[in-house]
């Protein structure tokens, strides 16, 4: 129905994780780009439009929190972000939201859970069709 695919940027330093997330998302009809850390992600976010960011916390050179803080300062159309982490404690969640995340997932990621997050954030009321 929609002529253009929703575009998602996966930000994770682990190649296998990126491939895994990509296979789930492409299977569900999303267009996917990848970045291996926060700096590369910011370079891509400044160059290409995205509808959603999936962001790992632990990455070399710039972590997920740092990336989101930088991203939120940029003068570009902003998109929602899901923080993906191995840490389930409440302080980590608080930190994710403070940095600019819109939701939060704990690894290991299940496909149906991931897609539910994407649908929720991509079809939020007020989101352009």
């Amino acid at each position: 129905m929609s002529p253009t695919l929703k575009r998602i940027l996966i930000v994770d330093d682990a190649a296998t994780v990126r491939m895994y997330l990509r296979s789930i998302l492409e299977g569900a009809g999303y267009a996917v780009e990848e970045a291996i850390n926060g700096i590369e992600a910011l370079e891509k976010a400044l160059t290409l439009p995205f509808d959603l960011y999936l962001v790992d916390v632990i990455m070399p050179k710039q972590d997920g929190y740092g990336f989101l803080r930088e991203l939120r300062r940029q003068d570009i159309p902003q998109a929602p972000a899901v923080m993906i982490t191995t840490e389930a404690e409440s302080r980590d969640q608080a930190r994710a939201f403070e940095s600019g995340a819109n939701s939060y997932m704990v690894k290991p990621i299940k496909p149906e859970e991931l897609l539910a997050h994407c649908r929720l954030l991509l079809n939020a009321p007020g989101d352009s069709p």
């Binding site: 916390v57 632990i58 990455m59 070399p60 050179k61 972590d63 997920g64 929190y65 740092g66 930190r95």
Partner: peptide
């Protein structure tokens, strides 16, 4: 997190 990542 930043310090942990740098330590790694």
């Amino acid at each position: 997190v930043e310090r942990r990542n740098a330590a790694i």
